[in-house]
Design a binder for these strands. Sequence first.
DNA 1: TGGGAGAACATGGGCGTCAATGGGATTAGC
DNA 2: GCTAATCCCATTGACGCCCATGTTCTCCCA
Lengths: 155, 155
Amino acid sequence: MDRFLSNGVNRIDAKGRVSVPAHFRAVLQKRGYQELYALRTLDMPAMDVGGLDLLDRYEERIGLEDPFLQTADDMSFFAHGDGAFLKLDGEGRITMTDFIREHTGIETQVAFVGRGRFFQMWEPDRFAAYREQVRARLLNLRRAATGTTPGGVPE
Amino acid sequence: MDRFLSNGVNRIDAKGRVSVPAHFRAVLQKRGYQELYALRTLDMPAMDVGGLDLLDRYEERIGLEDPFLQTADDMSFFAHGDGAFLKLDGEGRITMTDFIREHTGIETQVAFVGRGRFFQMWEPDRFAAYREQVRARLLNLRRAATGTTPGGVPE
DNA sequence: TGGGAGAACATGGGCGTCAATGGGATTAGC
DNA sequence: GCTAATCCCATTGACGCCCATGTTCTCCCA
């Protein structure tokens, strides 16, 4: 498996370290990444985390814009200025910096959430609340649509 | 990694010196720059700082303009006349001159902001305010577009 | 089927190194 | 001779690296 799936909560130790779930580390290793790129998610109190390919994708996107217009500058400001590299220690842990804590509200625990090509880090309570919001939205969509299948199984 | 990434705040000491973040210094060294070139960012209260390639980039931009028009002359004046060389001391610090302070409003602390190929220096409060503006603009872009993916990740 | 050995993983802590910062001394410039 | 810039050294705190502990899961065997 080469995608980030499932989620789990790990504890932050006295030195501010937290283990990246072994499964996520395995994915990173399979893709050959030693370093992690973390970005403050635009519209959620979470961090988007992935290998360097995540940064590459942003930079490719920025490259499509006129480099002297504001949009390109904004995108660079966001991807570079609001992003950071995270180093894994020998045990596969990363340290929760203020840079991460301020944006996410993370204090003592971290919820790791697989998102396919990348994963996210959340404060567990906020994640639970957000998950419920998402479920509610999806449920409304389902109800609004015609031809739904009872039992929640799509055709 | 050879890109300027992430942001952090360092303090200015009684002599007007401030440490350039070690990560940024490592990038500079990897790129082989002994000297730093800083210029006043055109539309922000910040300094753009990088190696000599920063100057190249501006000159490339100037090259796109008609040399008979005033715009090219203005840009040239700006890039060459509103820039300064910064020297790193033995500990990797630079001195905050009035040239920098006047344009940025920097007084006691400096926010270093990675921008990929270069980095910026901001007064920390102004940086925080500008960052929120950028995030708001990007959020509007996202909402205006169709087929967006939550989480700020382009497909 | 229950238990036990072992492996994998999360977690905790010691210690050395390096970065950020502060201050004194020395040199250059006016 | 005074100010300011530069160099050198000291301190402190954070971080990286290494090893130890504990817990859970798996697999194997009785």
